[in-house]
């Protein structure tokens, strides 16, 4: 049992700072996690990437294929484009919701929080299914459009880029709202009041005080949303069609239909690299926000 090493406090060796567990104990405690992630995560992902370059022999052909074939370049471009549009929409919808959630008191705030949290807690599959129900040929949106006389024949909504963007925005919106909400909530209400007292109008107080102070949260929310949008699979796979192929659906296609593992590995490497670069940026944003609160 790993905990048994906790039983005896360390009394010899390097001085242990108050209330800290020693290096040996700590290593024993994290080792199951390292083992699990090593076997089930790091090794498989590493092997996938390795295969993209070294299987069967060293070659960069799979990577040059991504750039050389227009089809794949289009997919790459579309993935970033959709992720960008989704992020912008999520910010435009999400900021006011976060602001209302942070500033409106009492019951109504609970109601807004419920509207944000309930979708977050619902399976992505369920939400995607709901969008299919809404957008399909004889779905709710088409029914409403026809009954109000806006259109005569049902529109093709499903399997379009618009549908993918709409559904993804919906699924990712809570990830935008929550970080912004948490920074807004930590900005004392007094600051805006002080600005008003010092002569700023309400819009000015917002633009000069609240907005800049909420930037770290906005940056975090934006990056999380963008990262998740880049690698999203379930929603584009179900709501999108052949003409809305994204990186993730392309990778799936390569493995399940074409069994081209090295090429899937190369695509994964591109997706992974973009994600990790953004994640590094996210860490910078986090440390930026930390410095902010300390300063």
């Amino acid at each position: 049992m790993p905990e048994s090493s906790l039983a005896q406090p360390r009394i010899h060796g390097s001085p242990s700072s108050a209330g800290r567990y020693g290096t040996m104990t700590s290593l024993v405690l994290v080792s199951p996690l390292i083992l699990l992630l090593g076997i089930a995560f790091a090794y498989p992902v590493g092997r996938l990437l390795w295969n993209s370059v070294f299987a069967p022999e060293p070659t960069l052909a799979h990577y040059t294929r991504i750039v050389a074939e227009p089809l794949y370049l289009v997919v790459l471009w579309r993935t970033f484009q959709i992720a960008f549009i989704v992020t912008v929409l999520a910010f435009l919808f999400g900021y006011p919701v976060a602001y209302a959630m942070a500033r409106i008191p009492g019951r109504r705030a609970m109601l807004i929080a419920a509207c944000v949290l309930v979708p977050l807690w619902t399976s992505i599959l369920v939400r995607t299914y709901a969008w299919i129900v809404l957008l399909q040929r004889n779905g709710i949106v088409n029914t409403v459009l026809q009954e109000t006389g806006l259109t005569e024949t049902p529109l093709q909504l499903l399997y379009t880029q618009g549908a993918v963007i709409l559904a993804m925005t919906h699924v990712l919106l809570p990830f935008m709202v929550l970080p912004i909400y948490s920074t807004l909530r930590n900005i004392p209400d007094d600051l805006a009041k002080a600005a008003r007292n010092l002569g700023a109008g309400a819009p000015q107080a917002f633009i000069r005080i609240t907005l800049p102070l909420s930037l770290p949260g906005a940056a975090a929310g934006t990056l999380i949303t963008f990262i998740l949008a880049l690698g999203f699979y379930i929603t584009p796979a179900l709501v999108g069609g052949p003409r809305t192929l994204m990186m993730s659906t392309l990778i799936a296609q390569q493995t399940t239909e074409l069994l081209d593992w090295p090429f899937a590995g190369a695509l994964s490497a591109v997706l992974l690299t973009s994600t990790l670069l953004l994640a590094a940026l996210y860490r910078r944003a986090l440390s930026f926000s930390k410095g902010f609160s300390n300063g």
Binding site: I11, P15, S16, S17, A18, G19
Partner: peptide, 11 residues
């Protein structure tokens, strides 16, 4: 004080 309590070890 922490050294007397045993939470820090003196060098």
């Amino acid at each position: 004080l922490m050294m007397v309590a045993g939470f820090e070890l003196p060098d």
